[in-house]
Design a protein around this nucleic acid. Sequence first.
DNA 1: CAAATTTTTGACCGATTGGACAAACGTTAG
DNA 2: CTAACGTTTGTCCAATCGGTCAAAAATTTG
Lengths: 211, 211
Amino acid sequence: MTTGTDHPRRTRIQQEKRELILEAALEVFSTNGFRGSTIDQIAEAAGMSKPNLLYYFRRKEDIHETLMQRLLDTWLAPLRELDDIGDPLTELRSYIRRKLEMARDFPRESRLFANEILQGAPRIMPLLAGELKTLVDEKAAVIKGWMRAGKIARTDPWHLIFSIWATTQHYADFDVQVRAVLGPNRGGDGRFEDAARFLEQLFLDGLKPKT
Amino acid sequence: MTTGTDHPRRTRIQQEKRELILEAALEVFSTNGFRGSTIDQIAEAAGMSKPNLLYYFRRKEDIHETLMQRLLDTWLAPLRELDDIGDPLTELRSYIRRKLEMARDFPRESRLFANEILQGAPRIMPLLAGELKTLVDEKAAVIKGWMRAGKIARTDPWHLIFSIWATTQHYADFDVQVRAVLGPNRGGDGRFEDAARFLEQLFLDGLKPKT
DNA sequence: CAAATTTTTGACCGATTGGACAAACGTTAG
DNA sequence: CTAACGTTTGTCCAATCGGTCAAAAATTTG
């Protein structure tokens, strides 16, 4: 092992240029979708010629695939961290907060994912029905345990997870609409804190067991 | 006025064929986005040749624009109906129900809209910042009135509306993911009723004023 | 240094794209 | 029936698409 990872052996330039391309491709793919994006667009955004880009990634699909693989690892990290050890309400609250922070800090990744799902998930369908389903089922079981123990209100764990995904990712995927509706005053940087406050109230008061 | 509407005068065949094209275009645009869709795809889905399609709509953009105009009217109807006359909690509950029904019955329209927003809303931005913002502000004022009257819990009306949009449209836009995660058993036709039950509990228990 | 290797580029390819156009075909009113 | 009008199609076009290739330029290695 000379490269430090199990990647194919790569030079310094290859590392840097591939990173540059992936960064540019994230920008382009996330706003135009796969079919709507062109290699020329990505190459221009990366500041290189098309043949040069194709020297690092032989096909357009290879770029998208690499981007997608990286995305899913980090994207599901917050859910993986959802654990049985802490206080249930606190765990859920911090899961929501983490997801909202990801929508704020990685909106392009969120949109890339949304584009893929919107188009029928042709490239990651097996992953959804396999790895993702397994993870969600596992966490749903944890949540069910909390419900049985009376720590949170009884409801559908799967749809609870969906609603957390939907509400948080909304601030990345529909950002344009959110800012347009909130207007210049409330649509500024503070909108994520407002959203955090609102979501905390919505979910916690809704989930709190009757006292 | 001979045609009964203010449309340009059209023959029977034009009416029918234009409808056929719009139906096909809805299918294609909603799954591939604007740039990712081709006139040939739409023509084939509509069962006609490309030149024939271009006889009814001179440009690809014209089809998309027509589709978009129709969409927005029906899409915002549920929010327009949100009224000050009924019981606040009942009003909100039926708004959520109506939006969920639209996600179930018109998923392609939802995806068409999602695609447009995801791509930065280049074709409807003025509408968002104009008509839509006005409508939401108006309804937010209604909701604020309910809060002041102690009918529902105090929270941010704008983000409340966002969360209703997000959670309901999720079942149309991310349908593939929802079904993959729920699996064959729970991902069938009953999933919308499960979602309705869950959302009602989430929102109502969260909004109920402290007694 | 010089040789070997890696990186970059310009020119090019066939396929597909959005769209134009005139000719052919259908339909209908007089 | 026939002339006028509406509809459909085959052909064509310039631009753009994803991708190739050989040669030039830059870099690394000995």
